[in-house]
Amino acid sequence: MRILVCVKRVPLTGGKMVLTDDAQALETRHLGFTISPHEECAVEEAVRIVEAEGGEVVVMTLGPAEAEEQLRDCMAIGADRGILLETQGEEWDAQATAGAIVEALHSEPEPFHLLFFGNESADAGGYQVGIRVAHALGLPIVTGLKKIDLRDGSVRCERDVGGPRDVYEAPLPAVLTVLEGLNLPRYPSVPGRLRAKQKPLARTAVSPPAAQLEKLRLIVPEGQGKQAEILGDGAAAAPRVVEVLQELGVA
């Protein structure tokens, strides 16, 4: 089984959103980076499938040179090799990103049986890169998955619809987009991190076409900076808390 997982480098935002002076990006000087949570589950699922059935997990990203860190993180939990579509750090819209992924897949020696994406990225939240790639490749796609069962030549998937689950089936090869909760991703081990440093990573420089969904500026919405009413300190606050619960009609 050959599996591609597409991931995106995003900042670990913490408690507050702070923008750069030109309002084009988050101020990330003091932030670490990770991949979107849904994608962590996509990588874990791919690694589990290949551990059970054999094959190869390839992890791909479009991003700056520093995104190597995220590809190595994925390789530390079991991905076999990485592909970095290297930008100059500018943001790409979803159409351009999907186009670059499809282009890169043309130079892969063999097609993939499964292509995993997160359902939506943590930062831009466009809900579409996986779907665009599926259409460009003429492959079936199922999105928003919390359960995946491989069968002979097909895949049975479940999607949470607010409690109940809808069941889909798709023939392979297929594109699947997943949600956090699909599995509980492992933490990388120290030997895993060491092995990851030796695994192959291919870099291709890419330059962006004109954006069709063109970012103009970012804005931190109002509503941050509310002043909470302090009801008290420690256990002694309990009577006041219960009064408030009664006022709110929830006690």
Binding site: G15, Q224, I230, G232, A237, A238
Partner: peptide
């Protein structure tokens, strides 16, 4: 940061505060 989005707050250890609210 949760206090910047909360309407009310109790400053204290939840292991003491939460059982006290239940008892009350």
């Amino acid at each position: 940061p949760i206090l910047a989005v909360a309407d009310y707050a109790v400053i204290g250890d939840l292991h003491e505060v939460v059982p006290a609210i239940s008892a009350e």
